[in-house]
Design a protein around this nucleic acid. Structure first.
Lengths: 173, 173
DNA sequence: CAGGATTATTTTAAGCCTAAAATAATTTGG
DNA sequence: CCAAATTATTTTAGGCTTAAAATAATCCTG
């Protein structure tokens, strides 16, 4: 190699075959596998224990954090799902009495959605168990491993955002 | 809200309430966010560039690895989706000419599914670009960070499997 | 203050996904 | 051999999800 000043790992990529990105692919597949595996188990337990779906649980989780309620658009951004999706989800949760909605005073286009007392009570009971499932699922990782994983995922998240938003944010330019 | 007594770091957990698993919950949410973010972008690009969905791409990826073809059941296990789902997915990919199926010689209940030459050609073209997207998405992580993340996710996967399969595998006991 | 742009939500059409029940072929234990 | 258990797939009913188009209210600019 003509250039010995290049450091070991980080820049090694550039020295090797320029076209080989199989490691990144494996990393992505492993991340996806983990996520799918855990998500599937959580869905299964939510259904078996509480007869509730993950999307409904997620929606209630968002509302539990915002005691004053949120608009559908806020929910859609937080949950990273489409607006049209929210319409249906909210519809069903209103029908089951878990949440309520009222037209926003400030903006008559928007709706404020919030948990009903019964909805909040139910959610908290589910959330407590849910938290223990997750703790059990990650139970074989030491505190340090959890911390490291947290940090690396944070970095991966930023890297992904950079790659996604890259040159196409009209607002900043 | 007043909770100025709560310490900030990872180690705090062991000191305070034994029942607090909020860190694990945060870890799970971050993992899920990463996965959702990247998966969404991959779906978007597959659609925009190749007019293909992620499930179809995934199915073709499995078949590309198995040149002799696979049964629906094998596919269903590998892809971690239900059998009923596969029936439809395979139906559509046969209709579009990407894959073909024939009844297994050995077992007349089973079908061997495999890529057509055209399907394989198309898949390889998509896969090459896909690999570059992923490399770009993880581009801000150093080689070492990627390696560490890989290792920690492997451990998380095992931990999750242990928690999921835990005491309910009838075959081993 | 009016018209155009923006924002919030809903509708539509299509695909993905699951669990559970039904079908059909194979394997296995007696 | 043959019935019971198992295995492979399909069907069914219902929920989730999206992109794109449609509606409706608000904001903004001249």
């Amino acid at each position: 190699m003509s250039n010995q000043t290049i450091p070991l790992d980080a820049e090694a990529k550039a020295i090797e075959k320029p076209e080989d990105h199989r490691d990144e692919l494996r990393l992505w597949l492993r991340l996806l596998t983990c996520s799918t595996l855990i998500e599937g188990e959580v869905r299964r337990r939510l259904r078996d224990r509480f007869d509730v779906t993950l999307p409904r649980f997620d929606l209630m989780a968002q509302l539990d954090k915002a005691s004053d309620g949120m608009t559908l658009s806020d929910l859609s951004k937080r949950m990273m799902v489409s607006n049209g999706n929210l319409t249906n989800l909210v519809e069903r949760l209103v029908a089951s009495g878990h949440i309520k909605r009222r037209v926003s005073d400030a903006d008559r286009r928007a709706q404020m959605v919030s948990l009903t007392p019964a909805g909040r009570r139910e959610f908290r009971a589910m959330a407590a168990e849910h938290e223990m499932w997750i703790a059990e699922i990650f139970g074989d990782l030491t505190q340090k491993e959890q911390k490291d994983l947290m940090r690396l995922l944070a970095k991966a998240k930023l890297s992904a955002r950079r790659a996604i938003m890259g040159g196409q944010d009209d607002t900043i330019r």
